[in-house]
Design a binder for these strands. Sequence first.
RNA 1: GUGGCUGUAGCUCAGUUGGCAGAGCACCGGGUUGUGGUCCCGGGUGUCGUGGGUUCAAAUCCCAUCAGUCACCCCA
Length: 448
Amino acid sequence: MSKPRPISGFPEWAPPQRMIEQYVLDRIRTTFELYGFAPLETRAVEPLDQLLRKGETSKEVYLISRLQDEDGPTVGEGTLGLHFDLTVPLARYVLENAGRLHFPFRRYQIQKVWRGERPQEGRYREFTQADIDIVDRDTLSAHHEAEMPLVIGDALGGLPLGSTDGRLPIRIQVNNRKICEGFYRGIGLADPMAALRAVDRLDRVGPDGVRTLLIETAGATEAQAKACLALAEISAPDASFADAVRQLGVTDPLLDEGLAELVAVMENAAAHAPGLCVADLRIARGLDYYTGTVYETQLRGFERFGSISSGGRYDNLASDEHVRFPGVGISIGVTRLLGLLFGANALSISRSVPTCVLVALVSEERRAESNRIADALRRRGIPTEVAPSAAKYGKQIRYAERRGIPYVWFPGVDGAGDEVKDIRSGEQVGASADVWQPPAADLHPTIG
RNA sequence: GUGGCUGUAGCUCAGUUGGCAGAGCACCGGGUUGUGGUCCCGGGUGUCGUGGGUUCAAAUCCCAUCAGUCACCCCA
């Protein structure tokens, strides 16, 4: 059998990277719960028709089939696909369990998702999303839209990125679709959705490119295109963007509604997390189910890789003939975030294993003695392993040193007491496994 | 899914007009009847991504494929 090889787009981190990932995931989870979001896990698969209910992302959905079905998956009734985000499964879950849920329903969900796209740095076919949503019945208060960025800011704000100079490592760009749609309506634009898609590409194709797109795909006149661009170029770190929009002289009820909502989001952010959010009226988001506030998140220093966390408000995703469940949510691309940071060597960990203490082995005959010491340490929460062989002590120390294990424990011989050595400083002191305690900073690997 | 670039040791890379696969670091063994790191001696640890083809001869040229990366598409 030939050597196994990686599969494109399906990353497998090494243990030190996985330890960092678990640290980040723990931090995200703790923050989500701190804000009162309840955990949920949905199955990996959804019926294909559910997955395709909104949007036309069909080409990137992975279908599943059994080996028995020799011709592969047949697309039709009952066809299953792997979910490509956590919002569509949530919508399905809410419709299915509406009678058992309390609204507004605040839930978080941290799971793998799959997309059959072409991988590159920061883009994968299998990746983890950490998603929060608030879903209500019939109507959803706008203040929930202001809460989302704060949670994300807290979850990611404290990441120990080497380059942080006191500033937050992220910046959340916020916009409101109602502003765009109201504005487009106010200037009499024929196809608002096409205009949104065109404006969304401002960063990539530039103002002239967008102008061309607006005229060619959205049926805009030269003057309309110019107005759209003027709107898209508005950006402000506070609520002052609203004045800039009004100065464009367009009036429309939906526009006013959107302005009020975005002002509320910005004022709330300024009050609780100064510098976190920026109102950026070019942010449109390709997904067509967003109906209000939309978010994108830039990682400082990695702007060219795009958003590492995004979402928005959707009024119509979860609904049937009788009830409507409007929601707002935002999702962190954990795998993308880590892939970018790993690639830049921006995150490191103090050791490559969880082990804090390596108990040395005097001889193979006395392994039980070392095992007892390890047990005593573990009982008190100190991650401990026993040396794999009774090699010369120099070798045993080197075993620890290679892995970054900070302490080696030497069982006492001939009646002498045990000793523990900090192999970084070389300091070695007498110790008892029943009471010795490492400094708190050494107990677990630290991320830096 | 479409197109471009890249692929040599664990890592970073060198390898001439096609002519016996190399360096630094890392790693392994020894000096050290048992406490590492410095120092000294010794060791190349490799299906040149993989599979075909051309050739007396391929890391080198050609084709395919896989992986990484970039642009598009889309998006975390």
